[in-house]
């Protein structure tokens, strides 16, 4: 018994160490970014670098947030990500539902085809998108950028939602129909509440894809709809790197995502579990 107990403890200790190492590997870059954002400019660029600031200051935050275009870019990022999430969900939910419930060969082809679009390099569709948006007269708008972001997130959203719908037994819908609900009514009133965790997971992935996207934002926006990733990148110019201000804005930009993830954490776990146990 003592031997088994010792082995268990050793295994647990090894796992904890492994966990700690992984946590540090994942967490250190962000922790370093956060700590650097509180360093004075000369300390932020010191060689060799220090991890913890010798002097703590909010100077970088003041400089970053007072830079022209930063606040509008933050607003644009929120607008674009919310729009993209809504568009993506509005399109993905009925598509995924139809594919999983009707189970037709064309539906399977459709889902595969949706996945294929993920394999096309983003830059390859950049030029056509620029031309299309300009022809539509919506270039440099959050709407145009949200549509572009939806082209990235929609295939994943359909696949995710399809896996969540698969996990919902047909009998639940049948029962709803017996109570007089139409198919759409059953979807709206019964199925969607059941997969609300999955919806949350899909929404957060879609939101994140738009929130962090760079290339389409670069190609499709100029002044009115420019998002924060472009503004963050602008702190590095050919003539210098404003490391402190860049880290400060990056830290500020991370906050909504962290808050969103923490708020939806329960739904995310539930959603992931829902998808994982499907037969």
């Amino acid at each position: 018994m003592n031997g088994i107990e010792t082995r268990r403890r050793s295994t647990k200790a090894i796992l904890l160490v492994l966990l700690a190492v992984i946590l540090v590997l994942y967490g250190f870059p962000f922790a370093y970014l956060l700590l650097t954002s509180f360093k004075p400019p000369s300390e932020a660029i010191a060689v060799p670098p220090s991890v913890v600031p010798d002097v703590w200051t909010l100077e970088n935050y003041t400089a970053a947030l007072s830079k022209e275009g930063v606040v509008p870019a933050l607003v644009n990022s929120v607008m674009t990500a919310v729009l993209s999430t809504l568009i993506s969900l509005v399109l993905a939910v009925p598509a995924a539902y139809a594919v999983t419930r009707y189970r037709t060969p064309s539906g399977r082809v459709f889902v595969l085809a949706a996945l294929v679009t993920r394999m096309v390099p983003t830059i390859a569709v950049g030029a056509p998108l620029v031309e299309t948006m300009r022809a539509l007269g919506i270039n440099d708008t959050s709407f145009a950028l949200a549509i572009a972001h939806t082209t990235i997130s929609l295939p994943l959203s359909i696949w995710l939602m399809a896996s969540f719908f698969e996990a919902v037994p047909d009998e639940i819908e049948e029962a709803a129909k017996m109570d007089g609900a139409s198919r759409i009514g059953a979807l709206w009133r019964v199925v969607l509440p059941v997969v609300s965790g999955g919806l949350a997971v899909t929404a957060i992935f879609t939101f994140l894809a738009s929130w962090n996207e760079f290339l389409f934002a670069l190609l499709l926006t100029s002044v009115r709809a420019q998002t924060t990733p472009i503004v963050i990148a602008n702190f590095q110019t050919q003539f210098g790197l404003d490391w402190g201000a860049m880290t400060a804005l990056a830290a500020v930009y991370s906050i909504p995502v962290i808050l969103l993830t923490l708020t939806l954490q329960r739904h995310i776990v539930a959603g992931l579990t829902l998808g994982a146990v499907k037969g």
């Binding site: 275009g69 870019a73 644009n76 568009i87 440099d140 709407f143 145009a144 002044v223 709809a225």
Partner: peptide, 15 residues
């Protein structure tokens, strides 16, 4: 979303 979409605007002002 539709309202925002129709307005087609961003936060930076109209050129």
């Amino acid at each position: 979303a539709a309202a925002l979409a129709l307005s087609g605007c961003g936060a930076g002002g109209d050129p």
